[in-house]
Computed example of a mutant assay.
Amino acid sequence: MSDPGGSAIPMFKVMNRLPGGLMLVPLVLGSLVGTFAPGALEIGSFTTALFKDSAMPLIALLIFATGTQVTMRTGGPVLATTGVVLLGKSVIPGLLIIALGMVVGPEGLLGVSILALLAAATNANGGLWLAITGQYGRERDRGAYIAGAVNDGPFFTLLFIGASGLGQIPFLALLAAIVPFILGVIVGNVDAQWRETLKPVPSIVIPFFAFALGTGIDLADVASGGLTGVVLGVLITPITGSLVYLGYRLLLRRGAESPIGFAAGTTSGNAVATPAVVAAADPSFQAYAGAATSQVAACVLVSALLAPLMVSWLLKRSGTAATVRSEEPEEEVAP
């Protein structure tokens, strides 16, 4: 039976039903091709350019497009909420992971490298944040999507690795990682039409660079890293989510609404690309990139399933599960 929208096989719709599916499905397909028929993508010309070598330029385009969606017209409450999300989701987890790395080295613990931990823990799934806060949050929560635009991508991972001395990340590599984002912010604020034009870019480029990344993943790595990736996802949601929750309760004083902070306890689909970016900047991390990519991919899915369940359950327990649709007047919720 054909799809009501006119698709004989609604592939896009089916992929989107799976959390992170727009990235995870092509990633798995790419890994199948890369494992069992790697020569098929080595025939050259546009085939090799698109399906094997396109990851880095397409990721760069995605970062630029993400920047265009960040506007300067944000009020104090939105900026305060954004700061709390970045502190709890990126800064504190990053510092803790680097402290661990100083003790155990870049190989990490129990088969999970410091690279995988940073890639999985220091960013959030912005789309899922919008979905959860759209159901349970206020305008200031939805506006904090800016945090997802800032921490999405490899910048924080590169920054922490370079600053800690665990890797030799050249300053120009850090600068190069954020130039597309900064230019995107400038363009999006100067010309709103560009911002609107680039809105659909994620849906267009993510499946293609995910497939290209997948071709570099050996399924043997997935088999060995899959379970640890699931465990990582199970830990990422409560640990990083609770840090944002504490920020909501102690800094923003949101009281019974504070469980919304657990919506940040996710891993962005774009984080799957981070190990490859870091390995390109510092080849010493190449040995960890394959396993880290598969672990982060598993973490994306697991955290996307757990975070909404935790937010819903905790808000029901606090008696504030009803949707907050209005911002007027928003009284401070007593702790």
Rank of each mutant, 00 (worst) to 15 (best):
I161C: 11
I206G: 13
L79P: 03
A321S: 10
V112T: 14
D53H: 04
I186P: 07
G319C: 11
V333M: 08
P259M: 06
T320V: 08
L118C: 03
G241L: 03
Y248D: 09
L29C: 14
A304P: 00
A163H: 02
V84R: 07
I92F: 14
I9M: 15
L158A: 15
T240Q: 08
S7L: 07
F211N: 04
R138C: 13
A273N: 13
V84H: 15
G21L: 08
D282H: 03
M310Y: 06
V278W: 05
T133Y: 12
L172F: 10
S45N: 07
G83F: 12
P335F: 13
L118M: 10
A116P: 10
G76D: 11
V205G: 02
G188S: 06
L306M: 14
I182D: 15
R317F: 01
T197A: 15
F46W: 08
S2H: 04
G165P: 04
A279G: 03
E330Q: 10
I114H: 05
A276F: 04
A99C: 05
L27R: 09
F36E: 12
E330F: 08
G148K: 02
E257N: 02
M310Q: 05
I260T: 05
I146V: 15
A49Y: 07
L227T: 13
I92A: 15
G162T: 04
V187S: 10
L58I: 09
G214T: 07
A223L: 06
G126K: 00
P238R: 02
M15E: 15
T228W: 14
L22D: 01
Q168N: 12
I43T: 02
A177Y: 06
P106T: 07
D218M: 12
Y136P: 05
V103Q: 12
A297Y: 00
G67N: 03
N123R: 13
R142K: 05
L232K: 05
A287N: 09
G290Q: 02
L109A: 15
G6P: 01
M11P: 00
I114F: 12
L166Y: 11
D191E: 12
V28F: 14
V302I: 09
R317A: 15
A322M: 08
G137E: 08
Q286Y: 06
T240V: 02
F208G: 01
G44T: 07
F12Q: 13
L110I: 07
F46C: 02
L158W: 02
D221G: 06
T228Y: 09
A334V: 08
V14D: 15
M310I: 10
V85N: 05
P329I: 01
F36W: 10
V231T: 05
P93R: 08
L306D: 04
T320L: 10
L130E: 15
G137T: 04
I59K: 00
N16P: 00
V190C: 07
G165V: 01
L243C: 05
L243N: 07
P26I: 01
D218L: 09
A220M: 13
